[in-house]
Computed example of a mutant assay.
Amino acid sequence: MRKTMLALTLTASILALSACSDNNATDNEVIATTKAGSVTKADLYNEMKGSVGAQAFENLILKKAISNEYEVSDKELKAAIKEQKESYGENFEAFLKQQNWTEAFFEQQVELKMLNEKLIESLDEITEEQIKAEYEKMKKEIHARHIVVDDEKTAKEVIAKLKEDGDFAELAKEYSTETVAKETGGDLGWFGPGKMVQEFEDAAFTLPENELSEPVKTSFGYHVIEVTETRDVELTESYEELKPGIENGLKKQKFEEALANLVSKVDVDLKDETFKSVLEGWQGTDK
């Protein structure tokens, strides 16, 4: 349930994973030999799939999703690459060596940065009203519990049982897909804004105490939420001091929402269940 900001960056090792899909090579192609045996392209892929595969898959899908909506022309890319190289001057080769990058990978990084910038430029500006609203939320903490299930029908079934005086903790242990609910009965403890995924937070912070929410859809499933207590928080910093951080957080939120929408538009058909949870994290966000 805790919110995670996923950075759209690629490392050299991650990009190498995608390079393993080179159509000019076969899975059994030997890329190194040793006295103890050969290393094939398939060996490399399987090794990297287990270590950096999830992050690699996520980054590659996000890059494809952005490039489906925004385009970096050859002219733009060549100009940006030239500018970046010139900024390093005679130290460019040393920079590549230090990063363990090839020049081709460097150019892909430039393209990725430009795609990100085009997406960011398309986002609406954060308003003063939005920042102030977030600031007001920071003055409050809530103690909540939830039951998360796979579908809306089951969530409504849980709500019906709770309204018939069903025990929340017991129903959480019975129904919730969250493993930790078996121990906590769905209790999330005290938390403030910025700690949960946005859909959950929006619903929880507007929910009166001891009232059940309607099913709330997030990337984790459908939640039934109950706020058991609220308390005021005394902020030690002024609005002006906190404003830059709040604004940055809202920008990141908008960026993630935009990425989720772009992923939904490209209609990913997953062929490898290894990365199912990664894809669900983006496809489950319904904006």
Score class of each variant (00 low, 15 high):
Ala42Trp: 04
Thr34Asp: 09
Thr236Trp: 05
Lys113Asp: 14
Glu129Leu: 08
His143Met: 09
Phe106Pro: 04
Val30Thr: 12
Glu201Asn: 05
Glu47Lys: 15
Ala42Glu: 13
Glu211Asp: 10
Glu141His: 14
Val148Lys: 00
Arg145Asn: 03
Asp43Lys: 07
Ala133Tyr: 02
Asp165Asn: 15
Ile225Asn: 01
Tyr222Cys: 10
Asp232Met: 09
Gly221Val: 01
Leu162Met: 07
Gly166Gln: 05
Lys78Tyr: 05
Trp282Phe: 13
Ser73Asn: 05
Glu86His: 06
Glu214His: 01
Leu207Asp: 04
Glu121Ser: 15
Leu112Val: 08
His146Glu: 12
Gln55Glu: 15
Ile246Asn: 00
Phe255Ile: 14
Val224Arg: 00
Leu8Pro: 11
Phe255Asp: 09
Lys82Asn: 12
Thr236Arg: 07
Met114His: 04
Thr177Asp: 11
Ala94Cys: 05
Glu125Pro: 09
Lys78Ser: 15
Met48Val: 07
Leu171His: 00
Lys139Asp: 01
Thr33Met: 11
Glu201Gln: 11
Glu178Leu: 14
Glu280Val: 09
Lys156Gly: 07
Asp165Tyr: 03
Pro193Met: 06
Gln198His: 12
Val197Gly: 08
Asp150Leu: 10
Thr236Tyr: 03
Gly194Ser: 08
Glu226Lys: 13
Asn248Val: 13
Ile66Thr: 03
Glu157Asn: 07
Gly221Glu: 02
Tyr88Thr: 08
Glu141Cys: 10
Gly194Thr: 06
Gly221Lys: 00
Glu178Tyr: 05
Thr236His: 08
Leu262Gly: 01
Met114Pro: 05
Gly166His: 03
Val216Tyr: 00
Ala79Asn: 09
Lys113Arg: 10
Phe275Lys: 04
Ala172Cys: 06
Met1Glu: 10
Asn91Gly: 11
Glu170Arg: 11
Glu209Leu: 11
Phe105Asn: 11
Lys49Gly: 05
Ser21Phe: 15
Gln99Asp: 06
Thr34Glu: 03
Thr179Ser: 14
Glu256Lys: 06
Tyr135Cys: 12
Leu115Ser: 01
Glu136Ile: 13
Tyr45Phe: 14
Asn210Asp: 15
Ala144Gln: 09
Leu250Ser: 02
Gln98Pro: 07
Trp282Gly: 08
Val227Gln: 02
Tyr239Val: 10
Asp232Ala: 15
Ala144Ile: 02
Lys173His: 02
Glu199Thr: 12
Glu247Arg: 05
Gly186Ile: 08
Asn24Val: 09
Asp272Cys: 03
Leu44Pro: 01
Leu235Tyr: 01
Leu188Gln: 06
Glu152Asn: 07
Lys132Met: 12
Val39Ala: 07
Glu201Trp: 00
Glu280Trp: 00
Glu134His: 09
